[in-house]
């Protein structure tokens, strides 16, 4: 248990620290790298909870896809971050004050948090032992939460359509591969075998 606790605090501290670095680092590339660090540690927390499937998904999706995409975007778009921060000093006092007020208030609220007595038991045995993590998730998703799952699917569909609609342009004059046509081509369509008399030319 002690090791678990130590690991929990280690991961947590690293997450909070790297999250802070994400928003405070001057170099945007560093920010993304800190984000990746935070993802990794979050995955660690999932592992601690016994949710190894989620941990892996987090690493694969967020680190492997999202964060890398961010990195590309940051490096490809030459954004002048210094210019974006220009008003920062000006708005800092007011913003900080509002943020502080909200923070204190939320602190008060969480101070009133009451933990149900059965929570400790539930968290120590989060998963049925006879099924694997993945299987358990699958059962829930395709039964009780089928509606949410399908709805999320629709959301993703819209995201996809949106991305295509807003960015896809059909440029005329661009040579494209047409796999079907290429595969369907027969030698007879393109190749003509001629008997060439020696020294006669075509």
């Amino acid at each position: 248990m002690i090791i678990q606790s130590l690991a929990f605090y280690l991961f947590s501290i690293v997450i909070v620290a790297s999250a802070l670095m994400v928003i405070s680092a001057r170099n945007p590339v560093h920010s993304v790298l800190f984000l990746i660090l935070a993802f990794f540690n979050s995955a660690g927390l999932f592992v601690l909870l016994g949710a190894e499937f989620l941990a892996m998904i987090l690493v694969v999706v967020y680190v492997g896809a999202v964060a890398v995409l961010f990195l590309f975007v940051v490096m490809m778009l030459d954004i002048n971050f210094a210019a974006l921060r220009e008003g920062f000093q000006q708005y800092l006092p007011l913003g900080a004050m509002v943020g502080l007020v909200l923070l204190i208030e939320l602190g008060i609220i969480f101070g009133s948090w009451a933990i149900a007595p059965e929570v400790a038991d539930l968290s120590s045995a989060p998963i049925p032992s006879d099924v694997t993590n993945t299987e358990a998730l699958g059962r829930l998703i395709y039964t009780d939460y089928i509606y949410f799952f399908q709805a999320a699917g629709m959301v993703l569909l819209v995201a996809m359509i949106g991305a295509i609609v807003l960015t896809h342009r059909s440029r005329p004059g661009v040579r494209k591969q047409r796999i079907g046509e290429q595969v369907a081509r027969r030698p007879s369509d393109t190749i003509e075998v001629r008997k060439v008399p020696t020294g006669g030319g075509i």
Binding site: A151, M154, V155, A159, I161, G162
Partner: peptide
């Protein structure tokens, strides 16, 4: 979100 995302687009 489904609604909003469509509207954003």
């Amino acid at each position: 979100e489904l609604q909003s995302l469509s509207l954003y687009v």
